[in-house]
Amino acid sequence: MGKGMLIDLTKCMGCRGCQVACKQWNNLQAVPTEFNAEFTNPPVRSAYTWTTIDFLITEVDGKTVSTFTKQQCMHCEHPACESVCIAAAIKKTKAGPVTIDYDKCIGCRYCQVACPFGVPKYQFDKATPKMQKCTMCADRIEAGMETACAATCPSGAIKFGERADLLKMARERIAKGNGKYIDHIYGEEEAGGTAVLYLSGVPLDLTKLKQGVTEEEVPNFTWKAMRQLPALLGVVGLSSLGLMAYSSRRNAVAAAEEGARSGAGAGKHPSKGGKHHD
């Protein structure tokens, strides 16, 4: 297994240092925004904003609740985006990150449809656009560094490391937490497992994490159909050949009958221009 990040939502204080660090490291331009009463800003992730802290402010039993959910690519262990990419531009690397090769991407945008978390974002505003998303700072990882967001996080909410170790750490925190955490490591099973994992102290509907995400490996959704293509080919091919043989035979019999009854008048099959090809 490769690297990943463990994001402990009980520690995140919504400072958005990670959001700025991401833009800084990856050289992403600021986008025009206006005041958002929910605080989340830019309000949606885009080709220029790969990670956001999604704020949620609400009331539960008369008590104010406010949570901060860091969102970015989940770096699925079996990425849907990779599986659908027509150009094989998206790759789950051994190191953990799921990356997009800009030189290969043709811009079909199928990954946007496929990603169960709605992650890839396109530069619709450009004439020569790129498909963009969090790279898990693959360039930093290659250089032996942790991700920019993890390095910045003042509260220690983002931990970077081997996914296996992070999973262990997450389990320990839940076990030692005395009920501080809900018993769910988001990303352990979601989408068949993701390199980014989350711990939460509140039920997930009080976070902005996407819920109802399948626990199957998403590429299987299409692979189950594509796997059957050879069978489909076999069935269609064989039945076509069979029908062809049967039809030839039928036509031959008919022709013979025709010959026997020649001179009797109009044929059974008035043929128009088909004579060359029978």
Binding site: R16, Q19, V20, K23, Q24, Q29, A30, V31, P32, T33, E34, F35, A37, N41, P42
Partner: peptide
């Protein structure tokens, strides 16, 4: 600083 301004662009 555009990166900070985009987070909190306006007085409220």
């Amino acid at each position: 600083t555009p990166w900070l301004g985009e987070l909190m662009p306006d007085m409220f």
